[in-house]
Design a protein around this nucleic acid. Structure first.
Length: 851
DNA sequence: GAGCACTGC
């Protein structure tokens, strides 16, 4: 049953009328009722096209002044904190104080001496009003008694900023000297709290905010700073850091140096519901440490807080409880009896095992025999046994969020063309809903965003002059930074912003001012097919939790509305949550990460969601072939080196090979690898004219050996440009933003290779054919299995697997026929493509494969 | 003659 929409102007008595609708009641079923119609048709909800003669009848009473209360928008992080202009240079929080912020008079005397403290005091009432504060003692108490707490907190509960501060003053949160079992030396354990975040912006903005709230300088700006952060390319901590925000990747990197996390008393794992690969690894490591013997920490417990926005409490709870269950085999009898709780937990364990098996069977019909999940635990640590036997090891706490209600509208019939449906809904909202209130449309990709953009703009030209204007703003990751920023700028008066976004707006970016969300119900999702080593990127239905997340974007500042361009039944049929990334990606990097941190038995690692055995074995095999693992499956010296590199396993292997004396091309390989690990550096041009122009401009960069050498030429030319690199990039139709990222990665890799002595300071060399050959042979050390040969019919077939593969049109070798090719990526879109392609000789491939 | 959602070290 479609919801009827009655909307009236703020404070006005007249119904808001659509310029072309006949009455003030509009049902959304018009959306689908006209699905067969061509877009050219002038729908009831659409204004006349400019070239059409249809008069735009109807009037909008008193639209003047509707935008009066319009709230200027600002760039906010995923956490909703305003990003101050000084964001990137990261200092002087006091300068970024908005002048309008009322300072409390009672603190006036202090504020003269310490602006930091004054600011902190001013923020105090805001903090106290956060929903999380009513749970502060519950959280403290939970972690005093137990070592693990699960916090489910909806958006706006304040958990990411407050929980670290709530815990920082706890008696267990201090540095203590201990003597380790095997070593005689005394080390300090604990004192600091780590908070992991999936994204860099979140880590830096949260750190800045918490520093402000605590009245302490941020990070490395002062040796007395208590709050810091650590993200790639930017580490800002002090000797006094007590609370440290890290990206998940950085945290795993720290674990490489210290698997026992000795500097930390607690680890807070934030945004667990997003379920990236890294967070799954962290959860497994945390379970092993928290429930283990803590021998590497001198017996001092590691407190763990797991924070999630969705209530997967039960699963997470079971997951951690299982860590304490002594496995029935391989455990000392003496230790077994020390814990009487085994039988109590067996119920939880088996039910979870059943569910886990059922889950995986849904996707993989012929599953291998069930693998025992339980780690062979030697004994629960000291705290576990002494508290009440009936009490579990995991505390839980539910924190309510702060979200305004959002009305949901479904279509009565399935929608075929969601771009068309989104177009109609956008105008329907624009005509019927009062200002202010921006519209956020979730689409699948650049293509759908751009096509809706031109459609909306086209129809908007035909709107009556009484109607507020529309400002259409595309938003996707590949969009140049300046264009992305437009989304955050306030709209001109009497203008409604229509933001057309990919799922970048679901988590990474928050736009304020949005009161209407249109959700097409689809997204592009990447899936790795283990058997053929192929990555595919396909449009799929989103999950229920993603639909809820999208809906929530309408209710952040006021009550809002969400228009789902699908039926209620389709919503009910959606998968409950996103498939965790670990079940749909290449596992080689994850496994190398585990091996390098001392996990020998991958099959028995505690995965929250266990990848199919086939995927694990495939990844182990790849690592073995690359020389990262020995015959026994232990990590090799090469594997250890690879794990420290911020690269995929294949690229890491190439970089290590480059230092071999007979190849000796580290500097050049770094240049190429930096490009391959960054988004496309060549601008995607749409018009034929521009394309030809670009081809001409890039001619001096082009190398006939293929894309690898072309990238090298480009980096060298860019790096040699000392006058104006931006202008250079523009002249050559190269993305300046991408090149800046390339230079960051290049700098990091060069520093790392200088440290390991594999890179000696050398000036750039002339790229001779001999050097080119060395480089390509070097890349084959990591990519021999990514190679294909030319068949008599002119197609290419992969050497391993005999799959047909075509050279991607973005490659310089597109349409060329050569003996054999090596490629960086094997992707499926409309068909199987090789991207990042160079020509190689068959005997090189044979040599690299060891045939 | 195609087209790439989004993170991260």
């Amino acid at each position: 049953m479609p919801e009827r929409v009655h909307k009236y102007l703020d404070g006005g008595s007249k119904p808001m009328k659509s310029a072309t609708t006949r009455d003030n009641e509009v049902t959304i079923d018009r959306l689908s009722g006209s699905k067969k119609r061509k877009r050219e048709h002038i729908d009831d909800n659409l204004p006349a096209r400019p070239h059409s003669n249809a008069p735009s009848s109807g009037s909008l009473a008193s639209v003047e002044g509707l935008s009066k209360g319009f709230k200027p928008t600002s760039l906010t992080s995923a956490k909703g904190y305003e990003l101050q202009p000084q964001l990137t240079n990261g200092s002087t929080t006091q300068q970024s104080l908005p002048k309008s912020r009322p300072g409390p008079n009672i603190l006036a005397n202090q504020s003269i001496r310490s602006p930091l403290k004054a600011r902190a005091n001013a923020l105090w009432p805001l903090r106290k009003a956060l929903p999380v504060w009513s749970h502060a003692s519950e959280i403290r108490q939970g972690l005093r008694i137990k070592d693990i707490i699960l916090l489910v907190g909806e958006t706006g509960s304040g958990k990411s900023t407050q929980v670290p501060q709530i815990l920082a003053g706890e008696p267990w949160c201090k540095s203590r000297p201990v003597t380790l079992e095997n070593a005689r030396q005394t080390v300090n354990v604990g004192g600091c709290i780590a908070i992991t975040e999936p994204r860099r912006v979140a880590a830096t903005t949260l750190a800045r905010r918490v520093a402000e709230e605590m009245g302490t300088p941020l990070g490395s700006s002062s040796p007395a700073s208590k709050v810091g952060y650590s993200v790639r390319f930017n580490n800002s901590t002090s000797p006094c850091t007590k609370i440290k925000f890290l990206t998940e990747g950085m945290f795993l990197q720290e674990m490489l140096r210290d698997p026992w996390l000795k500097q930390y008393s607690a680890v807070i794992v934030d945004e667990v519901h997003e379920r990236g690969v890294n967070v799954d690894l962290i959860l497994g490591f945390m379970r092993n440490i928290a429930a283990g013997r803590l021998e590497g920490r001198g017996g001092i417990p590691l407190k763990v807080a797991v924070m999630s926005a969705t209530a997967e409490m039960e699963r997470l709870g079971n997951f951690f409880e299982e860590g304490y269950v002594p496995s029935s085999n391989g455990v000392d009898p003496e230790e077994n009896k020390s814990d009487g709780s085994e039988s109590e937990w067996s119920g939880i364990t088996s039910s979870d095992e059943e569910r886990g098996t059922a889950d995986s069977q849904g996707k993989q019909p012929d599953q291998l025999p069930h693998i025992n999940e339980k780690q062979p635990k030697k004994s629960p640590h000291a705290n576990g046994g002494q508290s009440e036997k009936s009490c579990a090891h995991v505390a839980t706490c539910h924190i309510e969020g702060r979200q305004f209600p959002v009305t949901i509208n479904y279509t009565p019939e399935p929608v075929q063309d969601f771009v068309n449906a989104a177009l109609r809904t956008t105008f329907k909202i624009h005509y019927q809903e009062p200002m202010p209130g921006d519209v956020l449309v979730f689409l699948t990709g650049q293509e759908t965003v751009e096509s809706l953009e031109s459609l909306v703009n086209e129809y908007a030209l035909g709107m009556s002059r009484d109607v507020p204007k529309m400002l259409v703003l595309p938003l996707f990751a590949a969009l140049p930074q300046a264009a992305q920023q437009r989304v955050f700028q306030p709209a001109p008066p009497r203008t409604r912003k229509i933001i057309l976004a990919t799922n970048i707006a679901e988590t990474s970016v928050t736009v304020s001012g949005v009161r209407f969300v249109i959700d097409c119900g689809k997204a592009k999702i990447k899936q790795f097919r283990t058997r053929i080593g192929l990555d595919s990127l396909l449009v799929k239905s989103i999950s229920k939790s993603a639909a809820i997340q999208r809906k929530g974007r309408a209710g952040r500042e006021a009550a809002g509305q969400c228009y789902r361009l699908y039926t209620e039944q389709s919503y009910l049929d959606l998968e409950p949550s996103n498939t965790p990334e670990i079940l749909r990606c290449d596992l080689s990097h994850a496994i190398l990460t585990m091996k390098a941190r001392g996990i020998d038995d991958i099959i028995n690692f505690p995965f929250l969601d266990r990848p199919p055995r086939e995927a694990l074995e495939k990844a182990l095999m790849q690592l073995y072939q690359l020389g990262a693992l020995t015959d026994t499956g232990a990590i090799s010296e090469i594997g250890q080196q690879m794990a420290t590199l911020p690269l995929t396993v294949s690229l890491g292997r190439v970089l290590i090979a480059a230092a071999e004396p007979e190849l000796d091309c580290v500097s050049e390989v770094i240049d190429i690898i930096s490009c391959l690990s960054v988004e496309n550096i060549f601008l995607n041009l749409t018009s034929e004219e521009k394309k030809e122009e670009a081809q001409l401009a890039r001619r001096e960069l082009y190398r006939r050996e293929g894309d690898h050498l072309t990238l090298l030429m480009t980096v060298q030319a860019y790096a040699a440009e000392n006058a104006d690199r931006k202008a250079w990039a523009e002249r050559h139709f190269v993305s300046h933003r991408a090149m800046q990222a390339v230079m960051d990665v290049r700098k990091q890799l060069r520093a790392q290779c200088q440290q390991s002595k594999s890179l000696k300071g050398k000036t750039p060399r002339q790229i001779t054919p001999e050097l080119a050959t060395s480089l390509l042979k070097c890349f084959l050390k990591g990519f021999a299995t990514n190679s294909a040969r030319l068949m008599p019919d002119g197609s290419y077939k992969t050497i391993v697997g005999n799959q047909t593969v075509a050279i991607h049109p973005s490659s310089g070798l597109f349409g060329k026929k050569v003996e054999a090719i090596m490629y960086n990526e094997f992707v499926f879109t409309t068909k199987s493509y090789a991207r990042g392609v160079s020509t190689v000789q068959m005997d090189w491939i044979g040599g690299a494969l060891g045939v």
